[in-house]
Design a protein around this nucleic acid. Structure first.
Lengths: 324, 324
DNA sequence: TTGTATGCGTTATCAA
DNA sequence: TTGATAACGCATACAA
């Protein structure tokens, strides 16, 4: 491996001069500088990241931690993060699973963005105590080294409920996320508030898992119980899709007629469903961009306010009017 | 930051003893070892990755390079890689974009898996010349430090073509990937061979891009040209989906009746299409696992053979029989 | 403007 | 069994 030492030797200068030249310092003559650069080029010199990181105590890399690589939500989110990170001189790496957690405490990365329920808050707080910088997208956490960028779940769930209520539905199923999910709990809270504001709505909560399988399971229950048309609010789109398939395949019920369905997330898949799924939309790209932005500020030592991502309703034929 | 030096001081031993103890060497007494470990624990010691990497000249991290984070194919592929990597003591990080290329030459990672057409072969060969280990999933490259794990594109395209031919289709459109794509070229080659084996089939090639937009564009042309029922082979599913939507929305033609459509990849989305898209399937998880396996062997200095991932046909109502 | 020297946190060689 | 010391490749304070 060729190091600055080799360049120094070949150029007949000291390693510090080489280091200065390589880093574009004005302390060194243009002449020697260009000579050094030429030699570096010739020797095919490439700096060693570990050495630089060790010395500078920063890697210029930020890590994103996801539950898995399958999620439908992630594409735009990550693109948004990458765009901001790159323009600010950071590289973005995506990690998943417990093993990769070490990246943060071991200082392989300068900061972390968390979207992984399986990453314990306790663990995050430990890292924050060690002065590591973190942005969380999936929980509330109060610490000077942690910032939150959260969805406006309350507004979203409220929009969805009002959409169903306005259309006259009197019986509803709510399919939740997995027990510990922050998003699920926040959405559910808003759901209950919306229901509290109106009378005479019968509603049933079904525990889901934010995955297709949860929607399928819920569908079975709904089919078994079915008497009259009902509305269903799946607290995310993936479950809505699972539910939709199950109903279409295993019953004669029709989405948008007997089953009025709304989801949450507006994932790409929903655009290709028949009928179009009503859902709650938000800019995933912006969410990611903002998260990266906040993290970089945190790393720079700036103080940052927690941010919120706004949501809108996407109408769809999956929800029709209740017939009297 | 607490380092082994701090532990040594507190334990009244030398740093080398600490290092040995921490790494579970048998050179040190169980007694001093456990004392050291206790102190390390107490001090909340965490090793520094950069220092270790610098010294050991390995990071125990492998990097995957993708074109973007949106691809539908990636979920299982990455899971397969991660599983193998983790069990072999490696961490997996996912990168995208030109900026992140530096990870490999700068030795931040021990090896790379490439699935990104935008990553120039020339650049890869340079890295390989510098003794970096690489596995490519999207091209053929002959170098002792590069291994290939490729899809059996030829078999897949042949299966698809035979499926259409068997069903009596006499006019076909082939929607290709972007010009430089290795997969597209290989599939196209097999398509032509299949067509050469039969007579009287009229066929038209449409240049696509492996994205939904390419399918939509192709659809417009097909709609404009339409006279009699035709078969369409989209060289990947994403384009098939784009095409399907365009046709459904902007014509009265029906997939599976006037337009007989087959794709390639069997991405998850296809399962939710109406009608079910015929396509070519392969185990993405296995593909990823094998790629990681090969890379780790390469890093270990073992010699490895190039591997191939087998494919199968998935039938679907998107392809019907030609009516005479 | 350039060189000398030191240290970042480890691992590993060699002596003790 | 343990310790002193060098080295990994780089950045930088200070001296020249």
């Amino acid at each position: 491996m060729v190091s600055i030492k080799d360049i120094a030797k070949k150029a007949g200068v000291s390693i510090s001069t080489v280091s200065y030249a390589l880093n574009g310092s004005s302390k060194v003559t243009d002449e020697t500088s260009s000579r050094i650069l030429a030699i570096a080029q010739e020797l095919n010199y490439i700096p060693n990241a570990a050495a630089r990181t060790l010395k500078k105590r920063e890697s210029k890399i930020i890590g994103v931690f996801l539950t898995d690589f399958k999620g439908e939500v992630y594409g735009d989110l990550l693109d948004g993060m990458k765009e901001v990170a790159n323009t600010q001189g950071y590289d973005l790496i995506v990690c998943s699973g417990k093993q990769s957690h070490r990246m943060l405490p071991e200082r392989m990365i300068d900061g972390a963005i968390i979207l992984d329920q399986a990453f314990e808050s306790e663990e995050l707080l430990e890292y924050a105590d060690r002065n590591h910088k973190i942005v969380v997208l999936d929980r509330e956490l109060d610490h000077k080294n942690i910032n939150q960028v959260l969805l406006d779940n309350k507004a979203g769930a409220t929009l969805a409920m009002e959409y169903l209520i306005e259309r006259g539905h009197q019986k509803m199923y709510i399919v939740t996320g997995p027990p510990g999910s922050f998003d699920s709990m926040q959405r559910m809270k808003a759901v209950k508030q919306a229901l509290d504001r109106v009378d005479h709505i019968e509603w049933i909560e079904i525990e889901g898992d934010f995955k297709k399988s949860g929607g399928e399971k819920a569908a079975k229950q709904i089919i078994a119980d079915y008497k009259d048309p009902v509305a269903v609010f799946c607290l995310n789109d993936e479950m809505a899709i699972g539910l939709c398939n199950q109903i279409t395949e295993n019953s004669s019920l029709v989405i948008g007629e007997q089953i009025h369905l709304i989801g949450f997330d507006n994932i790409e898949l929903t655009r290709y469903m028949q009928p179009r799924l009503a859902t709650i939309d938000y800019s995933k790209r912006k969410w990611g961009a903002l998260a990266a932005e906040q993290l970089i500020k945190l790393i720079a030592g700036d103080t940052v306010e927690n941010e919120r991502i706004y949501v809108t309703l996407v109408e769809g034929e999956s929800v029709g009017y209740a017939v009297k």
